[in-house]
Structures are given as structure tokens and as C-alpha cells.
Design a binder for these strands. Sequence first.
DNA 1: TGGCAAATGTGAGGATTACTCACATTTGCA
DNA 2: TGCAAATGTGAGTAATCCTCACATTTGCCA
Lengths: 213, 213
Amino acid sequence: MEGSAVSDSQDGQIASPRRAPSQQRSRERVERMLAAASALIAEQGSDAMRMGEVAERAGVSIGSLYQFFPDKRAIIWALAERYTAESQACIAAALAEVNDAEGLRQAFSELVDIYYRLFLAEPVMRDIWSGTQADKALRELELADSRANAEFLTAVLKRLRPSADPEALETTAFLIWQMGEAAMRLAISVDRQEGDRLVAAYKRMALRELLGA
Amino acid sequence: MEGSAVSDSQDGQIASPRRAPSQQRSRERVERMLAAASALIAEQGSDAMRMGEVAERAGVSIGSLYQFFPDKRAIIWALAERYTAESQACIAAALAEVNDAEGLRQAFSELVDIYYRLFLAEPVMRDIWSGTQADKALRELELADSRANAEFLTAVLKRLRPSADPEALETTAFLIWQMGEAAMRLAISVDRQEGDRLVAAYKRMALRELLGA
DNA sequence: TGGCAAATGTGAGGATTACTCACATTTGCA
DNA sequence: TGCAAATGTGAGTAATCCTCACATTTGCCA
């Protein structure tokens, strides 16, 4: 029982694949399952997504689905993980080279715009991040992701303001990041015009905090 | 069929009592149902709350429960509505008399503290606001509540800065309010010390925005 | 190449739970 | 007192997640 590759989701813990697909065939099938889940979430939201429907659309049996995903949340979690990994790389790249205030202003402004467009365009991401508050495992993932992203920001701030209290900078960066996600969620849930204004206001506030020591 | 007091919850719409309790007896029973639900949510969270358990603990049958609440969400919604009504009155009172910058600073600071303590102390409120993102009806309620609260803040800002663009003030107030709720949710999901720092940082940022024109 | 263990595939059925409904009881009122 | 409306009941229905005993396929080695 030890040494098994199995890792079930329990309580609020992370739900990784029940069994890692080792053969080419199963890897392809798992991809089909994820694609089906993604499509269904885009159409109706993750809450309305039925496991039977995912299996049917992926052209596999319900048993196969559960061979690789211990439960429904695990599928959503797997999709969320992909998004976070992608966006984290993007964020790291955008902030890595920033060395002055003007650079930070530009990079941050661009990041906010990218995120906003992503939220507007990606129903799956939107849905998953919405459910983030209710699901413990997803919330952990989002918090971890947010901390990681905030760290890139902290690194920039430490470069720009070496004399400031590092802990305070960390708190500020983390808060700004989380508030950004809150602002985005808010922005996409009101009409487009108000959403744009809200994002612009957030950007202004965040930059004031980041730049105006 | 017209003129009935029935108002079922549909899709993402508001779920009000299926039938308004008109007799003393039923009013007391509805109170017991709400109390039972509240206790169960405090113990295990609204997701784990079972309708059968609510009925049992309230000492009524499952049928009686559904006589007054069209579905599970309606009970949660009813509890949420009480909280929002209470806190809105409190906020309105705190902001009504504010007429200068120093008054705003004090009133806002106090409000943030009150809210933070409330979030820390009230597991039910915490749980309900967490689920707010996933449930359409709850989200509507929270948005409406947030807009109402933001309006009190907007009124103050208009008094303090009569020459500013009113629409911009509204956007700012709404955003600050929503970010506050995000900051609170974040603060209670990390350890207490970091939570305190996050709330303090939020307060500082919000006040800078509110006061420093 | 044959054979075998491990990996993968299957879907009927178990278990849980929100919710319904046909019928019983209680209440307010003329 | 009688009766209609309000209220109360809980076994039963439906929907859905997930399991499990068994079938099939694959990789691998003698």
C-alpha cells in the first residue's frame, strides 16, 4: 500500500490523478476527458457539469473517467492547475526585468490588461476562479498561485525600495494581487462599461500604492 | 394562480419563502428551522448541511421545511439576508454624520475593524460569504448589498469633494468596498497575524484613496 | 513468438441526498 | 359547531456521484 502512485482527494486536500496514465493510449484519453470537461464547463458551468456527460463526450466509460480522476473536483482542479501554471510563467516573465518605477508601471499595467482580457474571454477560467471560494482544494491552489505571483511583485519592490520593511512589501504585494483578482471578478459580473471603469480604478489604486512609497 | 404568495427560486433568481407563515405557530417553527440551519452551518459549513438534519434538529418534518423554503439555497439566502440588513443599518449609521476628512478616517477605520471582527467571530457569515461566488442568487444579494453600502460611502465623498466627478467617486467607493470584502476573506483564511497585517494594509490603502484626492 | 502480469476499460448498481405529493391534522372564524 | 384554509407528515422519486467485479489490451521477457 505504500509506494503506490495513488493519491485520492480527501476532505479539502488536493486531488491529483488516481493513477498516472503511463501508456500513450491512456494519456490521449485523459486529454479527451479534460477537453470534454472544459467544453462542458464553458457551456454550462462546472456546477452543472455531469460526470456522465464528460465521459460520454470524451468517448469513454464512466469507469475510465474515475480511473484517472478520484472525483469530480479533481477534473476541475487539473484544469485550474494548467491555467495557473501558464499564467505564472507569463507573470514571471513580465516582472523579471523590471528595474525602475516606470518599468513597473508599464509591466503592471500590461499584466492587469492581460488578466482582464483573459477573464473576459475564458469562460472556463472564469468559472473555476468563481468556484474558488467554495472549494477548499481550489482555494488552496489559488492562494498558492497568488502567493507565488505576489513574490515576483515583491522581488521588484525590494529592488525599487531596498530600505523598506521586506515583510510590509510582501503583505502589500499579496494584498494587491488578491484585490486584483477580486476586482476582475467584480468587473466581469457587471456590464462591460462599468467593468472597464472598475479595472481602471483598481489599476490606478494599485499603482499609487506600488510606486508612491 | 396569480396573486399567490409563492415565489420559487429558479435558475439564479431570488428564493423567497414558498409560503409566508401566517400563524404564530408556523412563524416559530420557521425560526427554529433557521436556527438549526445556522447551527449546522457553523459546525460543518453550508455545503455539508443536510436538509434532513436541519429538519430533525428543528424538530419538524422534512415536508414542513419545504413548505416554507423552496430549496436548500433559500434557507442560506434567508440567513444571508438577515446579516446584510443588520450590517447595512450599522454602516449607514456610522457614515451618515461624517462631514470632514478626519471623521471619515475614523468612521472608516472603525467599520473595517467591526467587519473584521465579525468575519472572525461569525462562522455562519463567513461561510455564506464564501459561497457567494458560486451561487448566483447569493452573489446578486452581495452585489446589491455592496452597492448599497458603497452608496453611503459615495455620499460622504461627494460631501468632501464636491468638485470631483460623481461617477468616478461611485466607482471608487464600490471598488473599495468589494476589495474590503476580498481582503477580509483573505485575512481569515491565513493565520491571524498575517490576517491582521493584511487588514491593516487594506485600511491604509483604502484611506489613502478615500482621503488623498 | 507465446504467454503473462500490469495497465487499462466497462457499465450496472450502490449510496446519498435534494425535493415531491397525497393525505392527516390543526387553526381561525362565521 | 362546522368548515375552509393553513399547516404538518414522511415514504417515495429522481438525479447524480462514485464503486467494483470482471473483461480487454498492452508491454515485455523467455
